[in-house]
Every structure is written in structure tokens, then in C-alpha cells.
Amino acid sequence: MSPDTATGDPSVRHTPAVEATGEITDTLLETRGLRKEFGGFTAVDDVNFSIEAGELRCLIGPNGAGKSTLLKLITGTYRPTSGKIYYDGRDITAVDPHERVQRGISMKFQVPSVYGDLTVRENVRLPVQRFAGGDERRRRVDDAIAAAGLSGYEAVEASALSHGQQQQLEIGMAASLEPDLLLLDEPVAGLDVAEREAIAERVTRLNGTEDIAFVVIEHDTEFVAEIADEVTVLHNGEVFREGSIEEIESDADVQRIYLGGDT
């Protein structure tokens, strides 16, 4: 069950599927007709969204477009009003959140949610302890702390860390769950340039060496340009555009929705 992270082999959980047409696809996550209503308000409207294994997708769109809601539907925090979600070829629409995590979906919330009263070491140990014991565990904890740039901070209470450090810690904790798909909700909000760089580099590295697929919600276009393979634009709960960052940036309609117009 445990991947060999040292050599960067992909997680054994996910294998490419063979479609009915005989075509080999590597679709990791797929939503079909996904819809979420709150009272009379439709936050996510008939969204067909899919992610390939190892892909790095950025999800952008004006505020209120439904981005966070979509992520929470994927993690299972919200149940859809209608529609389905498939992960690794299987229907997970009715699967509990904690089980989705066990199957390989991991998330970093918008607001840093590390365990404030626990030390950095104790924080990291929590996800790691599910995967290893003894010396192996200690090694992984050390590696995770180092990867987050927090060596030397092992005994510091997480609430005493800076915002940027907490983001790094949380990404590290989410990554140490050995996910195939990591969802990040605004990982660089409120960070300075150096911290943003560090996060961008971290995400790219995790995506490259550990083949983790990413869905990242971010407003910072420079950050998006730096890391994204593909970009999906959400607007009013619907998928508005999809494409490379260059295509999106030069798309007049996308500019317009950001400026408040409608198409």
C-alpha cells in the first residue's frame, strides 16, 4: 500500500482504465451533471469536470462562482443535489468523506486548519501514523517537516507559526496522506512573494515527483500561470471555459466575467 516516495513511483492505488471503446484513459476524477443547491440558490450547476492522473488543474473564476463548493462536493463535505462523482472509475457520490480520503483524495482548506495547540511534530504525525510505525514513521515525519521548510520547528505549537508556515505545514500534512488527488483552496492567499514562490515550487515538485494530481483554487494569476497545466474557469456555478493558461488569459469573455459583465 505504501508507495516508494523516494523514487517517485506513482501510487499503486490508481491504474489507468480501459474505456469501453478500447481507449486507455487515465481519468482520475470525473463529475457528471453535478449540481448543488442551497435553498433556492444554485451554487454548482450541471458541472462536468474531469481530472487526469498527475494533472495540475487550476480552478479560477469570480467570487461566488462555486469553486469552493465544487471542491467540497469532491471531498464529500457536501452532498450533491443531483449528479454523480466518479473516482478511479468508481461511483463515490454516496461515499463518506473520511473514506474518500482513504481512497486517495486529500484537501487543504481555505482557512489554515492545523491543530493549533499541538506541536508541528504532533501535527504531522497524525496523518503519517496511519501509514507507518516505528522508525519508518519517524523518518516520514522528519521528511515531511523538512519538505515544509519547518526543520527546527518540530516542538513549536502550530498556532505560533506564521500564516505561510501554516500553509506549508498543512500542505505537507495533506501530502503525507499519499493522495492521488490533492485539492488546494487558495493556498497562497495572504502570503508574500517569497512564500508564494515556495508554495508554487512545492506544488510543482509534488506534482512532478510524486505524481499527485492537483486541483488548485487561486486568484493570483501569476501563481496560476506558473503551476497550471490546464485551467478551468467557473462562472455562476457552471464551467465557463477550459484551456491552457495562455488561452484563458487571452479570452475576452473571461475578462468580461471578471469585470462583472455577463455573456
Binding site: 471531498t75 473520511h98 480520503v101 491543530y115 496523518p127 496511519r130 500534512m173 496522506l177
Partner: peptide, 20 residues
């Protein structure tokens, strides 16, 4: 430790794959 994590933040602990 899982118990303590549940005490500190149930939702977060669920998202670490634990059946809270």
C-alpha cells in the same frame, strides 16, 4: 492521538481519513 485530534478539530480529522 486520534482522540485528541477529534477533540481539537473534528472536521479536519475527518479529512485525514479517520472515521470520526
Amino acid at each position: 492521538r486520534v482522540m485528541v485530534a477529534v477533540r481539537e478539530d473534528e472536521d479536519r480529522t475527518r479529512m485525514f481519513g479517520y472515521d470520526v
